[in-house]
Write a protein that binds this DNA or RNA. Structure first.
Lengths: 225, 225
DNA sequence: ACCTGAACACCGTTCAAGT
DNA sequence: ACCTGAACACCGTTCAAGT
């Protein structure tokens, strides 16, 4: 008897590392860091949590894979296409956009002991861009350090601050005012509460202010400009 | 019969919110974020986890209290003592030092819905320093945003990067080399690995490079300088 | 007023047992 | 080869019961 047609017995696609990682990405995007549990992930794939261990080593291994998927979403202009400032500006915005889509990744991007291929390609391209623009090795490390600290720090603030749209600012300021009985003791915070409620706060504008400040300062420090 | 002397029956100091928070701070400092569980905290205080709920509302309430203890460790020069740049430079270094002592706090400092008194005092002092130095309101917000994004982002990198001392750098670079079979495909990362192993990496120097870059740029943008 | 035991609905991971 | 059930040692929190 011939084995049954493949289509018949494929009621579920077989589990693979790829499928586990894709499901983990979706789960983290939907419910954040705490939703990403082995049990939830198993449930999502129609399988018991323990089955996952046939395809990934452990949860750390899943995080390694997820971080590399995020790095894969970040664009860096190919060498020679843009001047270094435009290339690094676009890259910074691309990193922020990726971290807005995947805020659970913010604390995980740096410091992987097993960096994946997208991670390696990304950092090689960034260092290549800076070195190619004339930054000596140490200056390129400084430049990357200050840019990345700013980008990740801004993403962290954006994730944690309790408002997202300009409209929500005045709401939150009102609640905070309620939680602080002696606001008169803090005149400069009172100003922040009043002004922010009036004029709002736009993350994109704020991000680009600091980014351009840093890029301009780095350009001023660049040898042979 | 007179009641027994106080000293006799005080085999344990009575539980208070203060004592709970102090123990929580010590626990987090010793074992990081994941060691700070209600059960561990109860054990540390010689009590069942459930008893803690008589003194704090829940774990979020504990985190609120801890964050305010950390803000209490950050110094800001009193108005008029230093020029704005020196005051903000010292403050930034004080924040980084506090976050080195309490790395578990990095993701928690911003975005508290119930900011404590030390938190309020701190931010009022910082805004006061910038406004007093002539930064218009919006420029002061920009300045604080870029400084804090940098400080928190740098602290996050420092916490996550897998080496602490310059000596450890070459070790880690060796391991990473082992984990990346095709390092030749990434010439600029190869340079990083080689150079970093040779010359090391000092966080304090690196932090101050970016900090001074940002402070100089802000000073250039300050009206009436 | 404060503390506790038991319970509920969760974690990551191991291991022997099943198919 | 892959999947599972039961188990281990954990989570935060609620609630009725104790003192």
């Amino acid at each position: 008897m011939a084995p049954p047609a493949k289509a018949r017995r494929r009621h579920r696609a077989p589990l693979t590392r790829e499928r586990v990682l894709r499901a983990a990405l979706a789960l983290a995007d939907e419910g954040g860091h705490e939703a990403l549990s082995m049990r939830n992930l198993g449930r999502k794939l129609g399988v018991e949590a323990m089955s996952l261990y046939n395809h990934v080593a452990n949860k750390e291994d899943i995080l390694d894979g997820l971080v590399d998927l995020v790095f894969g979403e970040i664009d860096v202009a190919p060498p020679g296409e843009l001047d270094w400032r435009a290339a690094m500006r676009d890259r910074a915005i691309s990193v922020r956009d990726a971290l807005k889509r995947h805020p659970w990744a913010i604390g995980l991007m740096e410091g992987r002991m097993s960096p994946g291929p997208a991670n390696l390609r990304h950092h090689d391209a960034v260092m290549g861009c800076l070195r190619g623009a004339g930054f000596p090795f140490r200056a390129a490390v400084h430049a990357l350090s200050v840019m990345d600290a700013y980008i990740y720090g801004f993403a962290l603030q954006e994730k944690n601050l309790p408002f997202e749209t300009p409209d929500q600012v005045s709401e939150v300021m009102e609640i905070q005012r309620g939680n602080v009985p002696d606001m008169d003791a803090y005149p400069h915070l009172a100003e922040v509460a009043t002004e922010m409620a009036k004029a709002g706060y736009d993350y994109a504008t704020e991000f680009e202010f600091g980014l351009d400040l840093i890029l301009d300062a780095l350009e001023r420090s660049r040898p042979g400009r």
